[in-house]
Amino acid sequence: MFGRNLLGQGERMVEIRIHGRGGQGNVIAAYLLASAAFYDGKFSQAFPSFGAERRGAPITAFVRIDERPILRRSQVISPQALLLQDDGLLRIPGTLSGLSQDGAVLVNSSCPPEELRRRLEEDGRPLSPLIGLMTLPATRLSLEVLGRPIPNTPLLAAFLALTEMIPLESLLRALSVRFSGDLLKKNQALVEKGAAQVASGRWRKAVHA
């Protein structure tokens, strides 16, 4: 199960892939997640896979987190978790590629997860029931608080709440290194809102069940 690979529970490094589009802050999301892990005392690495650098083009970023120094620098091919910056990305065939058989997908979407599963079935690519799929209206939350459609902060907060792999305080610290003043306050509010949208520890408990 996904959680068995989480830090503190298993031996394995956690690999995460973030799919987004140019302009959605995909690389920053990866950097924030790796920074949060670092501030929690872990080893981490984040890097983008730049393609055509234009707004709207699909862009992938990678995060690795481990208790030991990370040596591997190849792209993340078999992630345990995926973060998707919009639900349209789910319909791109490569997005789910290599996802662990009991992995997890968190999608920025205002649709319920069942609806996204139904769409995948329609596309002839049904998602295994072993794979966890959750959605979160991160763009709406960001528009409400920031006034801009940057889904990063609520998405990351929800992911950390679901997995409990890194405390939210570490994400807050990572945000405070990158932002200041009003923007930081708004991002702090978004952490709270994002985390409140999901059942804390849900992807961790699934493991122990």
Binding site: A34, S44, Q45, A46, F47
Partner: peptide, 10 residues
């Protein structure tokens, strides 16, 4: 390039 320049690490 990228592999190091754009990688965030400790």
């Amino acid at each position: 390039g990228f592999t190091l320049t754009h990688t965030l690490e400790p």
